[in-house]
Amino acid sequence: MIKKLFLPVILIIVISGLCLANSWKAPDQEKAKERSKETVPFIKEYVDDCKINRRICLMDAKVSLEDVKDVYFLLDSPVIKEKEDHYEPVRFAHKRHAALTKDCSKCHHFRPKDKDALETTRCSACHQDAFNPERPERIGLKAAYHQQCIACHKDEAKGPTGCKECHLQHVPDHKELVKLPDNADPFQVTAECNRCHDAQAEDMLKTAHWLWKGPSPYTTGHRKDILHGKGTTALNNY
């Protein structure tokens, strides 16, 4: 009898646990999400300072790592969202970047003309809509993010520069798309992938993953085989 009760009890515990887990949200993530939904008033005038001046100003204002309160932001804004929504927002580790560069002026490159304004304002205060006819030289928020990140990552030869290295793409749910019989064999799986991704399959055939004919020193049991490789003897169904 006890044994019969055991199973439902376990189930109840597991399910309620899952429900709890679903309702729990990481506070910093929620904060970042909320922040990314905000819009701030547009700053029209800014001080066109040179780089050195800007660093001195920031030093004078005693801006330091301690002032960086948020560990990370989600780089997103209604300004971008209203035009398009192809990618998930980037999780930008603000504190980490500040600590690594030790130079706030790299991103906070100008300041508002208003004397009372903070020395460091957020990107979306100055950069909002693209191609504003009144301020044609001011780039939009999306471009500001991309130009800033990609240029710096290239200069430093550090950090991602490709689309999907920073963004998650809105990928359609493959549970709905993939149609396979139960216990499908590897060939069926490959065929099902190729149904949509035939271009990628073609590309794959030209890569070393498919054509490699040299030694495979890291393959267990074949460390000493010289003429081994995917292109010749290995089973190559992926």
Binding site: A130, P133, Q147
Partner: peptide, 21 residues
């Protein structure tokens, strides 16, 4: 194309303005 460009490599506007920019 100008709307989608992530880096604003394509700036759209009046031709006269663009020349100034």
């Amino acid at each position: 194309c100008a709307g989608i460009c992530p880096t604003e490599a394509i700036t759209f506007g009046k031709r006269s303005t663009l020349l100034k920019v």
